[in-house]
């Protein structure tokens, strides 16, 4: 299978602190990594390196054959952050269409409508983002991240602020992207949701992967108990 995301020996330091310490991973098309860990474990830093937003202090990350942060690699990535990354004075449609334009999506308007509809927020397309609730803003942020149908979707706490309907739409969307051959990395504190989505699960602590395994067949209840012991 084609390796879509490859990270080798990633280290990232901030001053004297090693936020990421020798992390390696490889994900092929259709695979999903659920990344768990306590606050400050280095999950978001790994995600930012894989998105091309941060250069590793050592090691390298690749999307397909292209080393990050090359634009050709960044163009295949969709990023959902715990911040909305939206312009609150613009409408939902304008925000998503702007992202589509920057990614060179051929029919930006049609792709925008499709992305907003997938998150069930098409009826608010022409409302300024600042007038939307936190949950609806998160849906628009997700629509912005997927408008160019990325091969690699990186999601940092994507369920933040979503209600049950929004959460279900997001889960369906992530499953659909996986089935379409995208590789996913989902950072979450929700172990059950993460394990239900993922093909692989990893736990980070103090910048390192302290557990990495295939997620299929894992007992979520037992995993939760072991996780608590691991990060305690």
């Amino acid at each position: 299978m084609t390796t879509l995301v490859a990270a080798t020996g990633l280290v990232r330091t901030f001053g004297a602190r090693r936020a990421v310490d020798d992390v390696s991973l490889a994900l092929s098309a259709g695979e999903c990594l659920a990344l768990f860990g306590p606050n400050g474990a280095g999950k978001t830093t790994v995600l930012r390196i894989l998105a091309g937003l941060l250069r590793p202090s050592s090691g390298e990350a690749r999307i397909g054959d292209v080393r990050l942060p090359d634009p050709a690699a960044r163009g295949r990535v969709g990023l959902i952050s715990h911040r909305s990354m939206l312009y609150d004075a613009l409408t939902a449609r304008e925000n998503v269409r702007f992202a589509a334009a920057l990614h060179g999506v051929p029919d930006a308007e049609e792709a925008t409508v499709r992305a907003l509809a997938a998150l069930r927020v098409a009826d608010r397309a022409d409302v300024a983002v600042r007038s939307l609730s936190r949950g609806l803003q998160q849906r628009v942020a997700i629509a912005r991240a997927i408008v160019h149908a990325p091969d690699v979707l990186l999601a940092d706490e994507p369920y933040t602020g979503l209600d049950a309907q929004g959460g279900a739409a997001l889960t369906a969307l992530l499953r659909e992207r996986r089935a379409a051959g995208a590789a996913l990395v989902v950072v979450t504190h929700h172990l059950h949701e993460g394990l239900a989505l993922a093909s692989h699960a990893a736990v980070m602590r103090a910048g390192r992967f302290v557990r990495f395994e295939r997620a299929e067949g894992l007992d979520a209840g037992r995993y939760a108990t072991e996780y608590q012991e691991l990060v305690a």
């Binding site: 998105a51 990354m85 312009y87």
Partner: peptide, 10 residues
């Protein structure tokens, strides 16, 4: 709202 990150990923 961290919009610069979306620009930098593009």
């Amino acid at each position: 709202d961290g919009a610069i990150d979306a620009l930098l990923v593009a």
